[in-house]
C-alpha cells in the first residue's frame, strides 16, 4: 500500500528564509543530477571578471601611463584633478598626490556594472553560487536575495545609468579628440582613434540596452498608444536589450583594450599607426 501525501498539504509553509527542512519532497540525495558541463560557464565568468578586476585595479592605482597625446585611457577619463596628465577635461581640484585620478570617478562605471541586471546574474551565479547553475543546489543555508540591505542598493541602478550616460558623452568627446595629432592639430586619425571610437560605441550600446533605460524610455507606461515616440524608443531599446549581455562583455573588453593600447603608447612599447 502506497502512502500518499494528504491533499492540499503541499502548499505554503510559513517562514522567511529560515532554511528549515524540506517536508515531503522526493528523497534524492544528490545535490544535482545534471550530466552536462554546467560548471563551465560560471568558471569562465569568474576567470574573466577576476582578470578584469586585477588588471583594472592595477591600472587605476598605478597613476601613470594613462595619457599619450592625443589619447587618454578610459579608466582616467574624465580626469578631474590638477595632477592629471594631458588636458582633456577641466581640472576641478587638487587631490592628495597618492590618490590616483581614476579613483575619484570609479564609482560611476563600477556602480553601473555592479548593479547591472546582467552582471548581477553573472556574479550571483559564479561568485556567490546562488545558484551556480539552474537546478544545481546552492551551498547557502539562508537566502533573502535582494529583499533587504545591503542588496536593496541594487535598486539604485538607474542612478548609475544616468552617471554612465554622462561618462559616455565624455568618452565620445575623448574619441573625437583622437582626430588630432601629437601637436594638437585636427584632421588626423590613427589606430588609437579607432580603438577609442569602438570603445565609446560599445559603451553607448551597453548603456542604452540597459533594463533601467528600457523602463525609463517607455517601459513604465501602460498606454503605449498615447505615447508613440516613447513607444518607438522603447521598441528600439528592447531590440538592443536582447543583446545586453553581449554588450556587457564586449564593452568590458573594449575598455580594457583601450586602456592597454594607451598604456603601450605611453610607455613607448608601441607607436601609434597614423592613417593620415
Amino acid at each position: 500500500m502506497t502512502t500518499t501525501a494528504p491533499r492540499g498539504t503541499g502548499a505554503v509553509t510559513p517562514g522567511r528564509g529560515d532554511g528549515g527542512p524540506a517536508p515531503r519532497r522526493a528523497a534524492i540525495r544528490a545535490r544535482h543530477l545534471r550530466t552536462d558541463r554546467w560548471w563551465l560557464q560560471p568558471l569562465i565568468t569568474v576567470v574573466v571578471l577576476l582578470s578584469f578586476v586585477v588588471y583594472s585595479s592595477f591600472r587605476a592605482f598605478q597613476n601613470a601611463y594613462y595619457f599619450a597625446e592625443p589619447y587618454i585611457s578610459p579608466f582616467y577619463s574624465p580626469c578631474i584633478t590638477t595632477g592629471c596628465e594631458g588636458d582633456t577635461f577641466p581640472e576641478f581640484f587638487t587631490g592628495p598626490s597618492f590618490i590616483s585620478p581614476a579613483i575619484y570617478i570609479l564609482v560611476i562605471p563600477l556602480g553601473l556594472r555592479a548593479t547591472c541586471y546582467y552582471y548581477r546574474k553573472a556574479y550571483y551565479r559564479s561568485f556567490w553560487l546562488s545558484p551556480p547553475a539552474c537546478a544545481v543546489g546552492e551551498p547557502h543555508k539562508r537566502y533573502t536575495g535582494e529583499s533587504r540591505p545591503p542588496l536593496l542598493i541594487q535598486n539604485l541602478h538607474r542612478y548609475a545609468l544616468y552617471g554612465a550616460l554622462l561618462f559616455n558623452v565624455i568618452l565620445t568627446y575623448d574619441a573625437i579628440l583622437g582626430f588630432r595629432d601629437e601637436t594638437g592639430e585636427w584632421g588626423h586619425m590613427g589606430v588609437g582613434t579607432l580603438v577609442l571610437l569602438a570603445n565609446a560605441a560599445l559603451l553607448w550600446l551597453y548603456s542604452l540596452s540597459c533594463h533601467s533605460c528600457r523602463h525609463i524610455v517607455g517601459g513604465r507606461l501602460n498606454h503605449f498608444s498615447k505615447h508613440p515616440l516613447r513607444y518607438k524608443a522603447w521598441t528600439q531599446v528592447s531590440k538592443l536589450n536582447a543583446s545586453h549581455a553581449k554588450f556587457a562583455w564586449l564593452s568590458l573588453f573594449s575598455v580594457a583594450i583601450a586602456d592597454a593600447y594607451v598604456f603601450l603608447l605611453a610607455t613607448g612599447t608601441i607607436t601609434d599607426f597614423r592613417f593620415f
Partner: peptide
C-alpha cells in the same frame, strides 16, 4: 517554480 532556487533550495521561503 521548480527551478527557482529561492524556493527549491529554501523551503522556508515559500511563505514569502
Amino acid at each position: 517554480q521548480d527551478t527557482c532556487h529561492v524556493i527549491r533550495d529554501h523551503e522556508g521561503n515559500k511563505g514569502a
